[in-house]
Design a binder for these strands. Structure first.
Lengths: 212, 212
DNA sequence: AAAAATAGTGAACACTGTTAAGTTTCACAA
DNA sequence: TTGTGAAACTTAACAGTGTTCACTATTTTT
C-alpha cells in the first residue's frame, strides 16, 4: 500500500500547488487575473488538469475564501485572552478593520463577492456558511458577555451584534470597493481614508459605550 | 440646420436606445448577462456600432450607475419636506434600505461594484463622484440640522454621518451580496432578512436618539 | 459628377471557463 | 516478460467575452 499512499500524497500535493498558484495570482494580480489558464501556466500543467483536482473555478475561489477566514481567525486569536468584554469588543472591531486594510483582496472575497456564497448554495448541503458563522458567534458571545457587565441594556444581543457587524463591514466595504476613496477628496479635506474610518469607528464605540 | 438637427437627434436616440437595452438586460438578467453583444442583439445592430456611441463597456455601466442615482434621488425627494431633522434622518435610513431591497442590482452597481469607480478615476477629471457626493451631502446636512436640535452632542457631524452611512450600507451590502442570507438560517431561526435588518436599524436609531 | 464625411458592419485578435476525446504512464496479474 | 486496465494528463474544440481594424454602403458637400 506504500505506492498507493505515495500517489495519494502526490495527488494532494498537486491540489495544494494549484491553490498556492491561485493564491499567488490572486494576491499579486487580483481576482480578474486569476484565470484557470494562468493558474495552469503557473504550475506548468495543462488547464484541463486543474479540473481533475477542482470541480470548477468557483471551487478554487471558495478554497481561497476559506483560506482568508483561516487568516482572519489567526488575527482574532490573541483577542480571546482579553478579559473585559467591552475591551474585547473594541479590539475585535479594530482587528477586523485592520484585516480589511491589510488584505483588501481577501476581504472582498470573504465578505463582498457573491461567487463564494453562490458556490455554497449550490454545492454544500444545507448551505451552511460555517466560516461566517464562527466569526459572528465570536462577536455575539462578546456582546452577551458585555450585557453581563451592564452594557446594551434593553437591547437584543443578536441585533446589537448585527448592527455592529454591519457598521464595521460598511466601512470596510466602502474602503475596498473604492467608494470611500472617490468620496474623500471631494467631500472632505486631506483627511485620509484610514483616519476617516478610525473616526467613524470611534463614533460607534461611543454609541456602544453609552448604553451602559 | 433642420437636417443636421434631426441627425443629431437620431444619433442621441440610438445612444438612448443602447442604454435602454443595457438597462433591460441588466435588470432582467443581471450584470453578467449584460454583454456588448447581447445589447447589440437587443437593438438589432452590430456590436461594433455600440462603440460609436459609447467609449467602452464601462462607459455604459457608468451611465447605468448614474441612472440608479437618479432613481435614488427620486426616492429621497419626499423626505426633503420632513421638517424634524431626526425624523428626516430616520426616514432617510429607511428609504435607503428600501431602495436596496427593491433594486438590489442598482444598489450593487451604485455602492458595491468597483467598475464604476474605476471608470471615474480613469475618465473624469479630478475624479469627482458627484452622485455619491450629493447623497452624502443630504445626509450630512440632516445630521447638522439634528445637532442644532441638540442631537450628537460633542460629536463631529462628518463622523456621525459617515458612521450612519457605513452602518446602513453594511446592512444593504450584506443583503445584496447574499452574505446575510447565508448566515440567517444558520445562526438565527426563522427571522427573515428584512426583519433582521429592520431590527439592526432600530438599534442604530436607538444609539442616535440617545445622543440627545 | 466627384470628393468627403458619416454610419454601420464582418472578420479577426486575444482572452475566458469548460468538456469530449485521445494519449501517455505505470502498477499489477498472468 | 508481457498484456491489461486504470489513472494522469493533454490536445482540440465549443461557446462566449471586450475590442479593434479594415471595409462598405450611404449621404452630404463641393
Amino acid at each position: 500500500m506504500g505506492i498507493q499512499e505515495r500517489k495519494t500524497r502526490h495527488k494532494e500535493d498537486l491540489r495544494k500547488r494549484i491553490l498556492e498558484a491561485a493564491k499567488k495570482l490572486f494576491l499579486t494580480a487580483g481576482y480578474e487575473a486569476t484565470s484557470i489558464r494562468k493558474i495552469a501556466k503557473e504550475i506548468e500543467f495543462s488547464p484541463t488538469t486543474i479540473y481533475l483536482y477542482y470541480k470548477d473555478k468557483s471551487d478554487i475561489i471558495y478554497a481561497l475564501h476559506q483560506e482568508g477566514f483561516q487568516l482572519l481567525r489567526q488575527n482574532f486569536q490573541p483577542l480571546m485572552q482579553v478579559e473585559s468584554p467591552f475591551e474585547r469588543l473594541k479590539a475585535l472591531g479594530r482587528c477586523y478593520i485592520k484585516f480589511a486594510f491589510e488584505h483588501p483582496d481577501f476581504y472582498e472575497l470573504m465578505f463582498v463577492m457573491k461567487d463564494p456564497m453562490e458556490h455554497l448554495e449550490i454545492n454544500c448541503v444545507e448551505a451552511s456558511w460555517e466560516d461566517g458563522e464562527r466569526v459572528f458567534d465570536f462577536l455575539l458571545k462578546t456582546v452577551r458577555d458585555g450585557q453581563d457587565q451592564g452594557y446594551f441594556k434593553g437591547l437584543d444581543a443578536t441585533h446589537v451584534a448585527m448592527e455592529a457587524w454591519a457598521s464595521v463591514h460598511g466601512m470596510c466595504a466602502l474602503y475596498v470597493s473604492g467608494h470611500l476613496r472617490s468620496m474623500m477628496h471631494v467631500v472632505f479635506g486631506d483627511e485620509d481614508q484610514e483616519r476617516m474610518i478610525e473616526n467613524a469607528f470611534r463614533v460607534l464605540v461611543h454609541y456602544l459605550e453609552s448604553t451602559k
